[in-house]
């Protein structure tokens, strides 16, 4: 039985609009396991954004219970919620939400800066958080590289913020775009920076709110590939909030919302079978060779960023 990372019981959120009350969430109970790939879908007004805000600790429910990593966070104050957001949650937004005029590296450092404590203080936590899942079974080259990357992290017990940010950017394939500012990056690259920023604190969960909504279809595919691989290779829990079935289908499980309630749950195309899903990208990475630039938008196939590390 996989460990439960998120558990909500009967979540309620009501907005008052003039005279009428709107039940944005009307008793939502959902469980998400560690390493799961989940999509929350539904039409506009179904309550999925409200649910995301609460799951992301940006907002508190009016009623019900929300356990994140076993801790009840539904009644915490603003400062504690900020800490939880910082340590446990990574956001990827539709509109990227990068800071203007700030280099990619500094964008990714930002959560570490607000995390306080000594740089690299979470190295131990990182080690415990579980080794990245060596998804590319049967491809020794790739596995070796994953191992190398991990050893590097562990060796650097006191890795600086800068080093950790660098690692996160390497993990999303932006090793040669670190000092670029948002205006110097393509949409896909900007979203990769956002993903690196979400990754860098080793969160329990990444919440991706329409992550490909502002991207063309080819870049969308690459981005989805990256997020799926982070899930499969590193075991990071990823929750998509989307109205696109195209996206939702690529997950393990789809939660359909309607009028503030969970209307249906169904298995996605991936089911819980992660091994099979990892095959395709690994193979294509092999084909494109180690020098392939994973971050080039023109790259036809999705390559594993970990494997393009130089």
């Amino acid at each position: 039985m996989p460990e439960t990372v998120i558990e909500t019981n009967n979540l309620r959120k009501t907005y008052v609009m003039g005279d009428s009350e709107i039940h944005a969430l009307d008793g939502v109970s959902v469980q998400i396991s560690r390493g799961e790939l989940l999509a929350i879908t539904g039409p506009s007004g179904s309550g999925k954004s409200t649910l995301m805000n609460i799951l992301g600790c940006l907002d508190r429910p009016d009623g019900g219970e929300y356990l994140l990593d076993g801790e009840d966070v539904s009644t915490l104050n603003d400062n504690r919620l900020a800490e939880i957001r910082n340590r446990q949650i990574g956001f990827v937004f539709q509109s990227f939400n990068l800071l203007p005029r700030v280099s990619a590296l500094e964008q990714v450092e930002l959560p570490l800066l607000y995390g306080g404590g000594s740089p690299g203080g979470k190295a131990a936590r990182r080690a415990q958080a579980g080794a990245p899942v060596g998804g590319a079974a049967g491809v020794p080259d790739a596995q070796e590289r994953v191992g190398m990357a991990r050893d590097l992290m562990l060796q650097r017990g006191g890795a600086s913020w800068r080093d950790r940010a660098r690692e996160a950017l390497i993990a999303v394939g932006l090793e040669d775009r670190m000092s670029h500012k948002p205006t110097e990056l393509s949409g896909g690259q900007q979203q990769r920076v956002a993903i690196a920023r979400a990754l860098v604190t080793d969160p329990a969960i990444i919440l991706a709110d329409e992550p490909t909504g502002n991207l063309d279809s080819r870049t969308s595919e690459e981005l989805m590939g990256l997020l799926l691989r982070l899930n499969s290779e590193r075991g990071i829990t990823v929750v998509f909030i989307t109205h696109e079935d195209e996206i939702a289908r690529q997950t393990n499980r789809i939660v359909r919302m309607m009028d503030g309630r969970i209307e249906a749950e169904e298995r996605g195309e991936k089911g819980m079978d992660t091994a099979a899903s990892a095959d395709a990208p690994a193979a294509s990475a092999d084909a494109s060779g180690p020098t392939a630039a994973a971050n080039e938008p023109s790259t036809p196939t999705v390559t594993s960023p970990l494997e393009t590390r130089r």
Binding site: G56, L58, D78, N79, A82, E83, R85, N86, R87, F91, N97, L98, L99, P100, L110, P111, Y114, G115, R197, T201
Partner: peptide, 14 residues
């Protein structure tokens, strides 16, 4: 918006 982003990644009021 910048303030929102900073808060989302963990900036406290302070």
């Amino acid at each position: 918006r910048e303030i929102g982003i900073r808060k989302a990644v963990g900036a406290k009021r302070r």
